[in-house]
Design a protein around this nucleic acid. Structure first.
Lengths: 160, 160
DNA sequence: CCGCGAAAGTTGAAGCGACAACTTGATTCA
DNA sequence: TGAATCAAGTTGTCGCTTCAACTTTCGCGG
């Protein structure tokens, strides 16, 4: 119970820390940063919207809005996907790549300062295991779904 | 690094899970629930806005809006604080108490299902320690030391 | 006792996310 | 083949959060 209260505080405060730092220093949301980060790590810096949504744990609606804003700022571009007329490829532009290179150091430093550096190596491994366990119960379609899939959950009835 | 990606996914997904469950089942946001929960655990079910903000890790502005909405729905009430003309006491109403009693079981069940029950007792302790470490680095620039004060408060801290 | 700065809240505008409705392109199957 | 169905995205609206003023009150020094 005490653990829960503190964990809730973390859930409440950490996103604001990252969001604030990125917005002040680079004019980007944490989620925008994450979207561009995923694109930048992809061969061709291009991904279909649906896959990008899966990789960033977002709904298509949310991603659509975000990509719209990023496109207005010239950080990504939308290309029709050859072979499937309804799919759209999102691609990180050169400008977007430059934005990432400018924003990454500050963000990484913030992550280190508030998470990595305050934990021991054992705690980091523990955090990974804990996150895995939680994700398994929450994350029905997940990030890195390949090789990560569980066949079924016991008694997990997610009501509508 | 792999730990970080998974932890980010947790930070991204868990709030939505709790928020969705509470909104569907009880018509309350997770933060509204948390605000009322803190009030319900306070002697007199009453707290000054600033202290409530500290206990819920929120800004005064955010809390003001939320309490406004809760007051419109009759779940809390605002009382001028005797002794300090600028302070406001937020108090959980009977209706708000009833709402909490109705909402709590479902929320607790959700928390258990997605967090408590998927972790071992050791992991829960680890999570508490990890949360503590992260909070310590996040609270430094902020007035949020109250997260710990919530449970060792002897009676009413109205005058200092 | 007066003025000044800080504390406690409030307010309004702007931005982001959730949700539902909608459009359009692919699939399936009778 | 053609109609029903599903998948991929988009759009619009609404509610919540943030940010920057703003108001009022308290405390303090002159």
């Amino acid at each position: 119970m005490a653990a829960w209260v503190r964990f809730v505080a973390v859930l409440e405060l950490l996103p604001g820390v990252f969001d604030g730092q990125l917005r002040r220093d680079s004019g980007v949301t944490h989620f925008e940063y994450f979207v561009m980060a995923v694109l930048s790590e992809t061969p061709g810096r291009t991904l279909r919207m649906a896959e990008l949504a899966g990789a960033t744990n977002a709904t298509l609606s949310r991603l659509s809005h975000v990509v719209q804003r990023l496109e207005d700022r010239g950080l990504v571009e939308r290309l029709p996907c050859p072979g499937d007329g309804r799919a759209i490829n999102a691609r990180l532009t050169e400008s977007g790549w430059a934005k990432m290179e400018a924003a990454a150091p500050g963000h990484v430093a913030t992550v280190r300062r508030h998470v990595i550096d305050v934990l021991t190596p054992e705690q980091i491994e523990q955090l990974a295991a804990i996150s895995d366990a939680i994700l398994a119960s929450v994350d029905l379609p997940g990030p890195m779904a390949a090789g990560y899939r569980r066949y079924d959950e016991p008694g997990d009835a997610k009501e509508s």
